[in-house]
Design a protein around this nucleic acid. Structure first.
Length: 593
RNA sequence: GGUUCCGUAGCUCAGCUGGAUAGAGCAACAGCCUUCUAAGCUGUAGGUCGAAGGUUCGAAUCCUUCCGGAAUCACCA
């Protein structure tokens, strides 16, 4: 089925040939939705054509309107206001559209075939020294959703997680556990593994501060005291032992990381995100060094007298960037060069998306340039999906000041709020505790996910935990509610004939159909822009439009049998689009709520 | 100082590949449950789209400058 916009465009080009003997460039044809206050469905902006037609805007519009009306059965009428040609689309066209959508179980989306392009999406990428917090929540939701959206556009998506499991930070937790742990384990304490390890990370910091304060009291300078604190020295020693493959340290490291992974798995499961492959920095941190050395040999990079290696990016208006230390070891950038190279060798990657906070904008800018300097032709296939910070009313999250919002606690609170709201509204009285639990979970998480995903990723966003998250208005629960309502109608309707009868459509119905019709284009746009918020805000528009329709027109008690059938059918289709759209956001929809 | 991003209603956000009178939600006020779920619907009020120039028939949208805010610019990761 040809989309009406394409049909109009080709017909307008034909009209220009016949009326003005001109070959029109497609770019001058601007078709948009007609504004509410005017009659019509689609509007052609004729200003760009005025010069070609050599007529006034009104005359130009009238000529085109007449031509389209006569040549296209899909156009049932038109009117001209200034330079705007408002076209009314025939009901038969909308009915055909709705029929086509109904028959297509992919709703106009594509699925990945054998030769589909491969997209790798790296997201989450936590450190193993503390539990996931609000910032990770935004990261995980964005990464998962953009993966779904890319899949819906016919890409083969590989979701990967690069876990930062090595370095001084995990050694800090380890040494604190050795000193104060008394053998505590997740099993013995009943604590979640990541929470437990996180506690020792905090203990390290407290002890470290205490020792520094003591040393300063003894008369040492701040810097001197920081360097001399025994617990820090212990952590550094542990890191050296780790790098030297000391069996004791490695064993403890594996044990504590194992606890953390158990904890992370629980959180990921609950959040509903998943990965196809997990990379560990302990296995990849040496990558990249050889590539850099090769780059030096070829003269792409510079080696200083002390042995350190640098990339000179001053010609790109950036400064010089270190790639190898004077002792020959790698830095973060070097690892990223290495892991990217490894991944592009392993998979036929068309695009590699990194979901990473905007504090690393500079890093990814440099990464792409370094890869280009090293001569990799895939350097332009990296995309940094950069997202802004989640700010709290008090300002930024600071782990040291205890203002971090823990991901698990946040989900608990959201679900508890959903329960409270539900009870206040007197819903779900007759359901079993188990059913209720599941619905509260769906609503609570739906609220959280939607709240975060509806905001443009690149913007910083404000999150107020005290006021909790709204369950009214532009929210996940509102969309879920619309879905539950539709399901309820369908349950009441029972079996119905799924043919599309010929009916007279009212304005609201056309609005709903038009939105449904626009779904694939929205998903495509979301993929192009790497922005799930496009889908999220569309879902709200659709739900709102349907709610208005629901309020204004009876579905089951429609005036005649055909209208009733049609409305049931339309409701069912809206329900399926909501289901699909929310799936792209990683949000579940409840049958009732 | 360099680089990147943001600035739209009291608050949280849409709208940005230029189009008609800039939209939602929250908060405020006024209505609507004997009819398919009121987590809903309707209405009122609320705006110099940070500022000034420029391009254009037309600018919240594009360009320039400025103002305000954020991030980043380690032989850290």
């Amino acid at each position: 089925m040809q989309r009406i916009e394409e049909l109009l465009t080709s017909t307008i080009i034909r009209a220009a040939q016949e009326l003005w003997q001109t070959e029109l460039n497609e770019s001058v044809i601007q078709i948009q939705k007609t504004r509410k206050e005017f009659n019509g469905d689609l509007t052609l902006v004729v200003f760009p054509l005025v010069r070609i037609a050599k007529k006034s805007p009104e005359e130009t519009a009238a000529m085109l309107g007449k031509f389209l009306d006569e040549n296209l059965e899909e156009i049932s009428g038109f009117n001209v206001i200034k330079g705007f040609l408002n076209l009314t689309i025939a009901a038969s066209y909308w009915l055909k559209q709705i029929g086509a959508i109904d028959e297509d179980d992919r709703y106009g989306l594509t699925t990945a075939g054998e030769d589909a392009p491969t997209v790798m999406v790296e997201y989450s990428s936590p450190n193993t020294n503390k539990p996931l917090h609000l910032g990770h929540v935004r990261n995980n939701l964005l990464g998962f959703s953009i993966s779904k959206i890319l899949e819906a556009n016919g890409n083969k998506v590989i979701k990967v997680n690069l876990v930062n499991d090595r370095g001084i930070h995990i050694c800090k937790s380890m040494i604190a556990w050795q000193l104060f742990g008394n053998g505590e384990t997740p099993e013995s304490s009943g604590k979640k593994g990541d929470q437990l390890v996180g506690e020792y990370y905090v203990k390290f910091d407290q002890e470290y501060k205490k020792q520094v304060a003591e040393l300063i009291a003894e008369g040492k300078e701040t810097k001197e005291a920081e360097a001399a604190a025994p617990i820090m020295a212990g952590a550094r020693e542990m890191l050296l032992k780790w790098e030297a493959d000391d069996p004791e340290v490695r064993k403890l490291w594996e044990r504590m990381n194992g606890w953390v992974y158990d904890g992370f798995d629980k959180t990921y499961n609950r959040m509903g995100v998943s990965f196809d492959k997990i990379y560990y920095e302990s296995e990849t941190y040496k990558l990249g060094r050889q590539l850099v050395l090769k780059g030096v040999k070829k003269g792409f990079l510079e080696r200083e007298a002390d042995g350190s290696v640098w990339a000179d990016l001053t010609d790109k208006k950036l400064d010089r960037k270190l790639l190898l230390r004077s002792d020959g070891t790698s830095v973060y950038m070097t690892q990223d060069v290495g892991t990217a190279h490894q991944r592009f060798s392993e998979y036929p990657i068309e695009q590699h998306i990194y979901v990473v906070g905007n504090e690393q904008n500079y890093h990814f800018q440099v990464l792409a340039l370094v890869l280009e300097k090293l001569g990799f032709d895939w350097h332009d296939k990296l995309y940094h999906l950069s997202y802004g910070m989640v700010e709290l009313p008090e300002g930024k999250m600071k782990s040291r000041e205890g203002t971090v919002v823990d991901a698990d606690e946040l989900m608990d609170e959201m679900i508890a709020t959903a329960r409270q709201m539900s009870d206040e509204l007197g819903k779900l009285g007759e359901y079993s505790e188990e059913e209720k639990q599941n619905i509260y979970r769906q609503i609570g998480l739906g609220a959280l996910k939607y709240f975060i995903l509806k905001v443009d990723p690149k913007k910083n966003m404000l999150f107020d935990p005290k006021e909790s998250i709204d369950f009214n208005g532009n929210t996940g629960p509102f969309i879920q509610y619309t879905y539950a309502r539709i399901r309820s109608v369908l349950r009441t309707a029972g079996e119905y004939d799924s043919g599309i009868p010929g009916v007279v459509l009212n304005d609201k119905e056309i609005d709903v159909i038009r939105l449904v019709h626009g779904f694939p284009a929205i998903v495509k746009e979301a993929a192009r822009e790497h922005n799930p918020a496009v889908v999220a805000n569309y879902m709200y528009d659709l739900a709102k439009e349907f709610n208005q329709f629901y309020h204004d027109h009876s579905i089951l008690n429609a005036d005649d049998a055909n209208t009733r059938l049609f409305r049931i059918h339309l409701s069912a289709i809206v329900g399926r689009i909501i289901e699909k759209g929310m799936e792209l956001l990683g949000i579940e929809v409840p049958e009732r709520m």
